[in-house]
């Protein structure tokens, strides 16, 4: 019974990782690729580590706190890394996809530039 649960968890994890990688290849721009990277890959790894934790707790009888710590750490850092990468990509000037509908951030930056010109 426990083996089935572990198998399902790590299979889901492997599948999600592969789907995230396919998303990284298929999405048309950097921001879309970040969607695949921050969501699918994160949940995939969390599911695998949860499976490993259950394996050691119920089959070997060891409470491995480090694995729970890893889950917490991945949870905390994945969105921050995605945020940093998208911010830097936008500041460097990586363009949105051609079919994008609107860009509020670009207008905001234009407004700031105009204000600075008026000051100087």
């Amino acid at each position: 019974m426990t083996e089935i649960v572990i198998s399902i968890l790590i299979l889901i994890g492997g599948g999600l990782s592969l789907l995230g990688a396919i998303g990284i290849i298929r999405f048309p721009d950097v921001y879309g690729r970040l969607h695949a990277a921050t969501k699918s890959a994160t949940l995939g790894v969390i599911s695998i580590i949860l499976g490993v934790f259950i394996f050691f707790y119920f089959i070997e009888g060891i409470f491995a706190g480090k694995l729970l710590l890893t889950i917490l750490f991945v949870f905390l850092t994945a969105p921050v890394a995605g945020f940093m990468i998208s911010k830097s990509a936008y500041n460097v000037g990586v363009k949105l996809w051609d079919k994008s509908l609107q860009d509020d951030l670009g207008e905001h930056i234009k407004q700031l530039d105009r204000k600075e010109k008026q000051k100087s």
Binding site: I10, G13, G14, S17, G20, A21, I24, V30, R33, L34, A37, A41, T42, G44, V45, I48, I49, G51, V52, L67, T70, V74, A78, A81, I85, S88, A89, V92, V94
Partner: peptide
Amino acid sequence: TMSDRVVALDTIGINLIGFAG
């Protein structure tokens, strides 16, 4: 672009954690 490479490298790092698991 460089940003694409950073995203892909980040994902490789996350996948390596699962590999170790």
